[in-house]
Structure formats: structure tokens, C-alpha cells
Design a protein around this nucleic acid. Structure first.
Lengths: 185, 185
DNA sequence: GTCTATAGAAAGATAGAC
DNA sequence: GTCTATCTTTCTATAGAC
């Protein structure tokens, strides 16, 4: 939860708004989250959103615009990347900020989606395609991303019961599928 | 005998509103689509939405609540289901109504998502799991659904460039991945 | 059967007091 | 640096005229 209130400190208030925004946007779509709700989560007045970030979209962009990363998962053996990605996927989601959930919930919104699209392309799709290499690397990287998003969407946003338990089973099938795309054949 | 649109015909106006709703909800999320827009698409006044369907949510449920189906794709050889699903996925999307896009765009909305969740479970996940059979059938069916949604989401909602062309290449990799889940090993 | 007019609520954004 | 108060817009939904 948020750090204790520190009144009178512009930088601290900005940081609290960013943190509250990340949590709110992980739980509901851009359109459903209001600036009053975010400000309430940060313990400050809603007018500060516009004062410090210009607009709701400005806050959204600054809060989630550079939060995607796949770098940590790429460190390691190529033959076990599928398993590492699968293990990452089936882990219980922490409460609070989850960049993947932010994307899944707000991708359909025109302006918020544009922020997310460019962040995803720069921070995930391009590095992954370069790391994969080989034939059809951009397509294979795109399909890996599609599987990652598809699983989280179907489990956490749609709420399909079959994906809610049986972690070992899901990890085995997911790992095999992802490794097939990583290997390319 | 087919009945052409005739003003002054309650059933025809209802049908036109349902059709316009399906098109609108395929292109934007539940929250972003207004009843004025739907009514405009049907060429009638917005007040008729509430008169004929009680509420915007009532219209949504009646328009898209029973539109999911996977039955057609299950007809055929088990060894080639992966290819059939992959071909279905990479085909150019027709303009107009697409139940998958409706789900992807509105799944994050609490009330509209609830309508979609139950429809998906009944009309897709359960029949597919029964058709697949074997070990871990519900999990494998859930993962097939996740791949189907993940691909369409990443291509059409997020707009990843790598999934926008190269249909044969994408179909080959997708078919292999899906068949792996269908076979279970 | 369909329309106009409007009620009522909620949203983002801004001006200015403190 | 933060707040109150308010402007403006937009939305769903309803009442009642035609």
C-alpha cells in the first residue's frame, strides 16, 4: 500500500499519484478508472492530477509507459526459455501493479492503447525478435507475445476456470508450446 | 419469405438495432459505444434502445450473448484441427460483426464481461474440452482458447505489425502450436 | 411506433482561494 | 502545495407529444 502521507512535497505527491495510478489501471480499464479514484488512492485531491500531469492520459502514459520488460526472462539457456516464460505465466499474480493486466484492460481504448502499443513494440516485441533470431523471427516473437497475453487475458480478465489451477499441468503444456515457437520448428 | 426493413414494424426495428449493436460492439468496447451511436447505425432514435431492450446492457446481452460457436470448426479430422483453427485465425477479418472482437474489447467491463464469460464457457470451452478428451482436457481446451484469443487480440486490438502479414508463415507456426495442445503431447 | 425534450448522474478539466 | 467550487460535456434513461 502507499507510503505514509508526506504533505508539502511535490515529488512525493507525484510519486504517490503514479503508484496509485498503476494499481488502479491494473484492476480496471482506462475508461472505468476515474481521476477521483486515483487521487483517492494516493490520498490527495483530484485537481492535482491535472496540475502535475496535464491530463488523465498524461498520468497514464507516465505511469505505465515504460513498465514493460522481458529482459530478465531472456537471461539464461535458450533451450529452457519456454519453461521460464511458462513458469512466469502460471505464478500467482501479485496484488498491485501488473503491466500485462494494464495492457489487457486498456488496449481497446484508442488513446491509452496507442501509449501501450508503442511501449510494447519497443520494450518487448523488438528485443525478443532480436534475441530469437532465425527464420520468421518477428512472426515467432509476435506469436510468443500473443500466447503470453492470451493466457493472462483468458485466465485473469475473462476468468476461465480451467486456467485457474493445475499449475504444473498448465506449465508443462505452455512450456512446450512456447518452446516450439522459440525453436521455430 | 424474407421481410425487408419496413418502418413502423417493431420486429424489424428490433432486428436492425441488434444488427447495429453487433457491428458497433465489434469495433469498440462496451463503455465506448453509446446508445446514440447504435441507434444511429440502425437509423432510429436512441430512446428505442431502452424501450425495446430495457437498457444498454440488455441490448448487449441479446445482441452478443449467444453468438459464440466453435462447432463448425470441430467437424473434420482430429489430426488437422490445428490447421483448421490456424486457417480460421489468419483469414482476413470481415467487416462487421465478429464475436471474438466483441469479447476482446469488452471483456474488461464488469457487467458486459459477465455476459461474455458465461456465453464463452457454455458455447466454446465446454464443447471443446468434451471434443478433445484425454488427459487434462479442460486445461488443454482453455489453452487453445487462450491462443485463439491471444492471436486476435495481439493482431487486431493491440495491432502488432508482425502478425499483420505473412499469413502462410503464421499459419504454419500457429497450426503446430494448436495441434500440440489438441494432441496433448 | 417513433420521436423530442429533459432529467439526473458522472466524467475531465480549470480558476482561484488558502 | 493543495484544496474547494464549478464549468462543460457526455452519458443512460424516462416522460410524454405526435
Amino acid at each position: 500500500m502507499p507510503t505514509p502521507p508526506v504533505t508539502g512535497d511535490r515529488a512525493a505527491t507525484r510519486a504517490r499519484l503514479l503508484d496509485a495510478a498503476r494499481r488502479s489501471f491494473s484492476g480496471a480499464s482506462y475508461g472505468e478508472v476515474g481521476v477521483r479514484e486515483i487521487a483517492g488512492g494516493a490520498g490527495v485531491n483530484a485537481a492535482l492530477v491535472n496540475r502535475y500531469f496535464g491530463s488523465k492520459l498524461g498520468l497514464f502514459a507516465e505511469a505505465v509507459g515504460d513498465s514493460f520488460t522481458i529482459g530478465n526472462l531472456l537471461v539464461g539457456d535458450r533451450a529452457t526459455l519456454g519453461d521460464r516464460l511458462a513458469r512466469y505465466l502460471v505464478r500467482p499474480r501479485p496484488d498491485g501493479f501488473d503491466p500485462t493486466l494494464v495492457l489487457l484492460r486498456s488496449a481497446a481504448h484508442p488513446e491509452a492503447g496507442a501509449v501501450l502499443r508503442s511501449a510494447l513494440a519497443e520494450q518487448v516485441a523488438a528485443p525478443l525478435a532480436a534475441w530469437l533470431g532465425g527464420a520468421d523471427a518477428p512472426q515467432r516473437a509476435g506469436l510468443v507475445v500473443a500466447v503470453l497475453f492470451g493466457f493472462t487475458l483468458t485466465r485473469d480478465v475473462i476468468g476461465a476456470p480451467a486456467l485457474g489451477g493445475e499449475r504444473e499441468t498448465l506449465m508443462r503444456h505452455l512450456g512446450a508450446v512456447l518452446q516450439r515457437l522459440i525453436d521455430g520448428a
